[in-house]
Amino acid sequence: MREGSVYDWLQRRPWLLDVPVAGFVALLTFGGLLDRVSFLPLLLLSGAPLVLVWRRTEPVTVFTVVCLSLAVRALLVREIMPGDLSFLVALYSLSAYVPRRRPVRFAGLGVAVLAALVATLLFGYVGYGQSSLTYLAFTFFALLAAAVAAWTLGDLKRARLQRLEDLRERAEAVEREREQELRLAGQQERAAIAREMHDVVAHALSVIVVQADGAAFAAQRRPDDARALTLSALETIGATARDALGDTRRLVGVLRDPESGAELAPRGGLDQLGELVDRVRGAGVPVELHVDAPGPALPLPVDLAAYRVVQESLTNIIKHAGPSARARVLVERAPGLVRIAVVDDGLGAGATSDGRGHGIHGMRERVAVHAGTLTAGPAADRGFEVRATIPVPEESPL
Rank of each mutant, 00 (worst) to 15 (best):
G47E: 09
S86Y: 00
S69L: 10
S38A: 13
P103M: 08
L52P: 04
A115T: 14
L40T: 13
D35L: 12
L70C: 10
V37K: 07
V126R: 13
P41A: 08
V72F: 07
V77P: 05
R36M: 03
S38I: 00
V37M: 09
L52D: 07
L70S: 06
Y128K: 14
Q130C: 00
V77Y: 06
F39T: 13
G110S: 14
Y97H: 14
L121K: 05
T61F: 07
L76W: 00
A119R: 01
Q130H: 02
S86H: 03
V104L: 10
S86Q: 15
G83Q: 07
D84Y: 01
P99G: 05
G110L: 15
R105L: 12
V104W: 08
V113S: 10
P82M: 02
V89A: 09
G110Y: 05
L70F: 03
L70T: 02
L52V: 06
G47M: 15
R36H: 11
L114G: 13
S86I: 00
Y125H: 15
V60S: 12
L133S: 09
G110D: 10
R78D: 09
V65P: 05
S46D: 12
C67M: 15
V89R: 01
A96F: 00
P99W: 01
R36P: 00
F87L: 12
V77N: 07
L76S: 01
P49Y: 02
R105N: 03
L133R: 10
V51I: 13
L42T: 01
R73I: 00
P99Y: 04
F63I: 06
L42K: 08
R105A: 11
G127P: 03
F63C: 12
W54V: 09
G129S: 03
L133I: 06
P103C: 06
L44C: 12
Y128N: 12
Y128I: 01
D35C: 00
T61S: 12
G124S: 08
G47H: 02
L68H: 02
S131Q: 11
L70E: 13
L43Y: 04
G83Y: 04
L45K: 06
F123P: 02
L122S: 11
A48C: 11
P59I: 04
T57L: 14
T61G: 14
P49A: 04
L45M: 07
S93R: 02
S38G: 15
G108P: 09
V72L: 13
Y92F: 14
D35F: 07
S46M: 11
S38K: 05
T61Y: 00
A48P: 06
Y92W: 15
V62T: 08
A96E: 01
G83S: 07
G108W: 06
S93E: 02
G83L: 05
L50R: 10
G47Y: 02
V53G: 08
Y125A: 15
L52F: 05
C67L: 15
